[in-house]
Design a protein around this nucleic acid. Structure first.
Length: 270
DNA sequence: TTCCAGGCGTATC
DNA sequence: GATACGCATGGA
């Protein structure tokens, strides 16, 4: 990772990073491509627009930000301290993963806000990505930002009807209530073992193994969490009937992202 | 019209 | 513990 300040922008050189693969691959739902490959989005209360500058040189422009904001927010959010080149070398011991890494080598795991990731993946269940984005878009438009669980304390399934989230609204309300009552806290989940953290998350109605592992991976940066959805189920059935290869140990979640992107392409449905 | 989408709760055996 | 089924919504 190298960067320099240029006026109001930051010029970033970062290999193993591709914007659409990272920002529009189903791990986050609030980044929008303007049609030219420039993405705009928000983390916590900080907005950002980021563009590819020179694909061959792995350079990007972070528009209208400061060096402080880059180092304190975006450096962590884009997981720039992690060497994905090394991770891909490790995973590429396996033939299928080697292909997946080659196909989608620009994926990075975003270090998202825990509550946003958890609530987003509650919304994601038995749903498709365009509609997930629509529901989350209505939620953020309504609140003028992504609401915290405290912001949503008075919501009921009925008051959330405007989301058109269907049966998921009551699950969102249950999550909101459990955090506002202190039955669950983000800090406790963060500091627990991955097993205990999973149990806490699955005490929420509407959070089963899949939503739980997505929340752990994308909202709590637990790289060993391995979400199994219909797509990954196809990968496992096709390539790994006897389980994941040893090279994925500890970084199953990253492997999952490469495989998820790869299999969706194989089926011609990206 | 029917099927499906980054699943899960519930009933039933 | 496994399996079947319903669930809100909307695009294909």
């Amino acid at each position: 990772m190298e960067y320099r300040v240029k006026g109001k922008d930051i010029i970033l050189r970062q290999p193993d990073f591709e914007l659409s693969q990272t920002l529009d691959c189903g791990q986050a739902f609030r980044w929008a491509d303007d049609g030219s490959g420039t993405f705009s989005g928000t983390f916590l209360n900080s907005p950002l627009t980021i563009s590819p500058l020179d694909k061959g040189d792995n350079t990007f422009i972070l528009h209208n930000t400061t060096e402080d904001e880059f180092l304190n927010i975006w450096y962590d959010y884009f997981d720039l301290s992690t060497d994905y080149g090394e991770i891909k070398r490790i995973l590429s011991e396996d033939e299928t993963l080697s292909k997946a890494c080659a196909f989608a080598g620009g994926i990075r795991i975003l270090r998202q806000d825990s509550w946003e990731a958890l609530s987003s993946f509650i919304i994601s269940q038995n749903n498709n990505i365009p509609r997930i984005k629509g529901i989350i878009g209505r939620l953020t438009e309504h609140y003028g930002k992504y609401p915290s669980f405290a912001d949503m304390a008075d919501e009921t399934p009925e008051s959330l009807a405007f989301l058109r989230a269907g049966f998921r609204a009551k699950y969102l309300v249950d999550a909101v209530d459990k955090f506002n009552s202190g039955t669950l806290t983000i800090d406790k989940i963060k500091s627990a073992s991955v097993t205990d953290a999973g149990k806490m998350l699955m005490s929420i109605k509407g959070v089963g193994p899949k939503v739980c592992s997505c929340a752990l991976l994308f909202g709590f940066y637990r790289l060993e969490a391995f979400p199994v959805d219909v797509w990954v189920r196809r990968v496992l059935d096709t390539y790994y009937p006897n389980g994941l290869p040893d090279c994925t140990k500890g970084i199953e979640g990253i492997a999952q992202q490469y495989l998820f992107h790869y299999i969706r392409n194989e089926y011609g449905k990206v």
